[in-house]
Simulated scan of single mutants.
Amino acid sequence: MNGFAAGLRYLAQGQRWVFSRPRWLLFGLVPALIAFVVYAGALVALAYFAGDIAVWATPFADDWDGAGQSLIRVGFALLLVAAGVMLAVVTFTAVTLIIGDPFYQALGEKVEETEGGAPPGHGRGFWQDIGVSISDSVRVLLRVLLFTVPLFVLGFVPVIGQTVIPAIGFAVSGFFLTVELTSAALDRRGLPLKERIRLLRRRLPVALGFGVPLVLLFLIPLGAVLLMPGAVAGATLLARGVADSATPGQAPAAVVLGKG
């Protein structure tokens, strides 16, 4: 539980960092707001057409009695929307980070500055940064899909499909959300995607303590928009902590909210 609580503290400290600096909060809201409008429209469309998709996907239920047919199709539609929401939570972050790369790079570097300074970085240009960000986000999404598809199928299993599977789904979403949000800070430290995932997997309770509550908060209307700048700030603090603690002979970075 200590690790989970540490992750939650990073999340809270990141939110406190931006809310104590309104200029940086507003700066970070712009790309999140743009992405929110796009995603809200897509999820509304998915919910509107979920019933039609369920009918198309379950032709075997055409001859069933009314109750059985309704149960399977309503269940399918609900699971489809739930899977869409889970993917939206993870991909929202990736898309927002791509849209707002200059915004969030500047925000992350400012957080690093208030905590003792950022590493020299990788020396890539703006468009190279965008290309790497898109490539990494696609690879993260493919990993998420490896979990989402079987979890979607297992959602039809009685009892565990309504209890255990959603909990696992939130854990998967939370972990990969943390992977996405820490990408910029860990990339500045020269860690490629596989190394970032390996590092966060070794600190799994911390990653889940940061990501799972954030997934739940992102489900609140406009929560993703309002909390995104603080999520980037908190992820930068988390990245400093886990990367420094993984470096031999170097003490973990203390999370001290300096002025900036």
Rank of each mutant, 00 (worst) to 15 (best):
L181S: 00
D63K: 12
G249S: 05
F60H: 02
L226I: 14
Y39W: 11
L151E: 06
P221I: 10
Q15R: 01
T182G: 06
T148I: 13
G121C: 00
L146Q: 00
A235P: 10
A67Y: 14
V232F: 00
T236G: 05
A82N: 09
F4R: 00
G174W: 09
V225G: 09
F4C: 02
I134V: 14
F156T: 09
P166H: 05
W17D: 01
S245G: 13
A239T: 11
P205E: 09
M1N: 05
L79E: 01
M1V: 11
S137Y: 01
G211C: 02
R203Y: 07
R16I: 07
L216Q: 05
F92W: 12
W127D: 03
A40Q: 15
T182F: 04
G14T: 00
A106Y: 03
F19E: 07
P221V: 11
G121R: 03
W24V: 00
A254K: 09
F92V: 08
Y10D: 14
A47T: 11
G230V: 07
G260Y: 02
A88H: 13
I165C: 03
V18R: 10
E195A: 15
Q15P: 06
V44S: 15
I98R: 09
Q250E: 15
V172N: 06
S133M: 08
A88C: 13
V164N: 05
G3D: 08
G66A: 15
F126M: 12
A106E: 08
T91N: 14
L97I: 02
L142K: 03
S70I: 06
G108Y: 01
A40C: 06
P192G: 10
E180G: 05
A82W: 15
G51T: 15
W56C: 01
T58V: 13
T91W: 14
V242W: 08
F126T: 02
G249P: 09
V111N: 04
K259R: 08
T148L: 15
F49I: 15
Q128E: 10
L33K: 04
L227E: 09
L8C: 03
G230F: 07
L87S: 08
L208R: 03
P119N: 04
G3R: 02
R203K: 10
F76N: 10
P192A: 11
L181P: 01
R198T: 14
A235Y: 03
G14I: 01
R189M: 12
L204A: 07
F19R: 08
V255W: 00
L97D: 06
L219R: 07
L71H: 11
V140Y: 03
F4G: 01
W64A: 06
S20T: 14
A35N: 09
A207R: 04
V18G: 03
L43G: 07
E112N: 10
T114P: 04
G117C: 03
A207F: 07
F19L: 11
W56R: 15
G117H: 01
A118M: 12
V55H: 12
A5M: 07
L200S: 06
Y10W: 13
A77P: 07
P31I: 09
F92C: 05
G169S: 08
A50I: 05
G190L: 06
F60I: 08
A106D: 13
Q15G: 08
L226C: 02
L226A: 13
W64P: 12
L145C: 14
A83R: 05
L227K: 05
L257I: 10
S133L: 10
H122T: 09
